[in-house]
Amino acid sequence: MIISVLSGKGGTGKTTVATNLAWSGSKTAYIDCDVEEPNGFLFLKPAIEQTEKVNVMVPSIDKDSCLACGQCAKWCQFNALAQTKNTLLSFLQLCHGCGLCALVCPEGAITEVPREIGIIEKGQFNNNNEFIHGILKTGEPIAVPVINRIIEKIPELTADFIIVDCPPGSSCAVIAAVEKSNFCLLVTEPTPFGLHDLQIAVNLVRTLNISAGVVINKADSGSEMIRSYCEAEGIPVLMELPFSKGVARTYSTGKLLVQEDLLLRQEFQDLMARLEGVVS
């Protein structure tokens, strides 16, 4: 069972919810797809056992065979190639590695060569819970290939529940992380921004036809705004984490809430149980 944790808005508490939830189940794996800033490891402190490179296959152009016909640039939907008056220019950071340029080149002047854009690390936390995260190289603009590689690893895992910590926003990177999920946990905060981006996240999961529930983090008197939206839309609110200095303090020292606070430990165990109920 794959449960992804996303939010639309950044900084609402995806990683807080995902890491504490992952710690609360016995056969639970944690997967960090926020490859631009993976920080789940700070809280779960996994022992890393395996590292592999993530390559994108990018075009290498044989200048002698290239006739500068511009077909490759014309077909590249990622704008990674441009045909200038006399030469072909490539912008390999924009390449998604689809290979179409090599296919359409009438002269066979393009071969595909690997280009490293990041790594994946695999390990264990809390004795024997599986852990995977991806790290996109600094300066690389495209996260999707790293996320796809992580998602491809899910079938190798033995856990019953796989918690996917998603990137913020609602772009291609989020869709790549969420696509294979059975359920989405939408983390929001009781602010107008939180609600606005929650609505975008709800649209996203509905488009992908995945059912979802909401966690209100930093809950306070403003939470009613989120609750009434969820009620109107028929989306269950599965947990409310109260706004608290204690929570912030625990977070800032890299500790899990479930290790420090018995009440919150119970809350997360209840959330896990509720998810098992909702999903199965």
Binding site: F78, N79, A82, Q83, T84, K85, F91, L94, P141, C172
Partner: peptide, 18 residues
């Protein structure tokens, strides 16, 4: 047409000009 491209809008627009 580059207005709606998800990436590389400048390159696509430049290709139009070229």
């Amino acid at each position: 047409s580059a207005v709606n491209s998800s990436q590389g809008a400048g390159i696509q627009a430049a290709q139009f000009v070229v």
